[in-house]
Simulated assay, not measured.
Amino acid sequence: MSEYDWLSEVRALVGREYGRVYAWDEVNPMMVRQWCEVMGIENPLYTDPEYAKQSEFGELVAPPAMLQPWCLEGLHMNNYPPGSTDENPYEVLGLLEQQGYPSVVAVNSELNFERYLRMGEKLYYTTIIKEVSEEKTTALGTGFFVTQIMPFYSVKEAGDEKVGELLFRVFKFRPAHSKASFENKSAAEKPDATKTDAIPRPYPGISDDTRFFWDGCAKHELRIQHCKSCDALQHPPAPVCSHCQSFDLDYKVSAGTGEIYSFVVMHYPEVPPFDYPNPIGLIELDDGVRMIAGLVGVNISELEIGQRVEVEFTSFDDDLVLPLFRSKSG
């Protein structure tokens, strides 16, 4: 596709390296222990000093997969420690949003490790805009792949040492279900990225395996995949039964009642057309399966694990029906 004039501002950011984001704490055994407990990691190399003393390292080391968590801001958004940059490494995504590419999906994330981290090390990372692709058309829509690299360093008196790297790629796109192409619309018809009501909800990816579920939503039925061989239910839908590997599948209609097994409240990034804060729940249905869905009509400050909820089918943009969940009365 031909280049747009406004893309020159976007491409000018490629190769730019944004300033340091420091870790709040040094690598320490308390946080390693807690992380291992949460993740179910039982390797004594990370938590047993006596065992680690006999290893090739001679002391405790941190799990490599903890590389990124050391430099997270914590509970409050953009709450980075003193000395961290105040630059916005995601400004390239904002520029694309301004041009009518509001939706985002993470395509891939890759962590590479140079070595194990030892207790007492202080880390930071920088952000480099590695690439902005040509305009691409996918099943989701038309947009641009943006690739960022975050190299992580350990602070050293003799010179900071690179200890790992995170590659993060996202797809910023205009949803494919638009009734007319962006280019064919008049200026008055083009969506204003600053107005959430002008941007439609992105459509789910629908395949032969999941079509029955979305057809059910259109009829206000919560359909759960059912194995006719072993009588098990499963969600999300799959081409084969995860219990007995049978291909003989149909569905059963759920009553749509259950409880919140877990939840998050999304604050950032704010992606149109969603409202923020945006509560999302992992719902354990009374049928015995779990599904992720938006929560509506709930008091965010009163959300809790085990809270009873029931499905509510909500229509968006006339022809998209999604199963959301609200607190169950009574």
Rank of each mutant, 00 (worst) to 15 (best):
D317N: 12
K179P: 07
P200R: 04
I280S: 08
P102L: 09
N78T: 10
T142S: 14
S133K: 06
A232Q: 12
L324A: 01
L93H: 10
D209P: 00
T85D: 05
S181D: 11
D25V: 04
R201W: 08
M119F: 03
I292N: 08
P49R: 04
V21P: 00
Q98G: 13
T127A: 12
Y203P: 04
A218Q: 11
W24C: 11
Y18C: 10
S2G: 13
L7K: 12
V264L: 07
C230P: 06
V311E: 04
L322K: 01
D209L: 00
Y90G: 13
Y46V: 02
Y101T: 15
S301R: 15
T314M: 06
T196R: 14
P63D: 04
L67K: 00
Y80F: 14
T314V: 15
T210M: 05
W35Q: 00
E42T: 12
P202E: 05
Q225V: 10
A193I: 05
T257F: 06
W35R: 02
K195D: 13
I128G: 01
W214S: 06
D215I: 07
P204R: 00
V132Y: 08
V92C: 12
V155D: 13
F316C: 02
V132T: 15
C217Y: 08
R20W: 01
V105A: 10
T47F: 02
Y251M: 09
D215W: 05
L249K: 06
H177W: 13
R223K: 08
R118G: 09
E161H: 02
C241N: 00
D5P: 11
I206G: 06
M30K: 03
P63E: 01
E221L: 14
E56L: 06
S84I: 03
A188S: 07
E59L: 01
S133A: 11
Y22S: 02
M266Q: 13
I260A: 02
H76G: 01
P81L: 04
C71H: 00
T210L: 05
A180W: 01
E3P: 02
E37K: 06
